[in-house]
Amino acid sequence: MTAPLLSLSGVSRSFGALTAVDDVTLDVPPGARHALIGPNGAGKSTLFKLVTGSMRVSAGTVALAGDDVTRLPEPQRARRGISQTLQHSSLFLGQTVEQNVLLAAQRQYRSRHSLVPRRQAAARARARELLTDVGLAARAGTPVAALSHGERRQLEVAVALACEPRLLLLDEPAAGMSPAESARLVALLQALPESVTVVIVEHDLDVVFALATSVTVLHLGRVLLTGSPDEVRASAAVQEAYLGTGRGALFLDGTGPAHLEVS
């Protein structure tokens, strides 16, 4: 039994009287494709922030590959291999698509202290490769401000991957993407090597069930259930949580494994 790559125990975070994340305990093994689902306001995005360190926990510990990182600041956690896409895209708007990816990629190539632009060749090559993967190769020189919403989401993924993460956190990456774009995203994520562990928050259950090998359902900040996709689908408690928020329809029509064309 290998140690979990990400291990949360008793993690909580409150905002005043509201406990947005409440005593979450969760282990994600290396190489997992883990989905985190739950109605809006369940605390999914907040939980991601607690993992990346952009927000402090109120209680509990976060461990990465066995090391307690609860007290580490965000950049140090990132250097240990945590990378993310944010729900609300956060890019360098004044810069080109390629520069955005380069900023993430150059950290991997020890070129960031070099004054000679030529040394950046390796980082550039990697950036272009990633842009091709997400389908933005033709837009490399375009300022981010000129991208469409869907294209920005794709760029987010490229930036996150350029960090060469061990743990990739994706917060609703397919939101706002066209069906073709999200199919491409799923294919890209499916093709990621085992060395990258993925935790994904996604409302599009087609995407979730196409990818996930395990699912955690979060409700009102608490873990309702962690299990295989089939177990989650069958769970009465989950149905109820979703029905309570009027989003039951999402589950009710998904009886069999969801179908998804991957072009």
Binding site: P75, A78, L103, Q106, R107, S114
Partner: peptide, 28 residues
Amino acid sequence: WLVASSPFGGVLRGIRDNEARMRSLGYS
């Protein structure tokens, strides 16, 4: 000019545009 065009200069521009994102990319 070399400083500005180097990867270091790129990091400075990144900080100018979005410091929070730079932190999450592993820069202090």
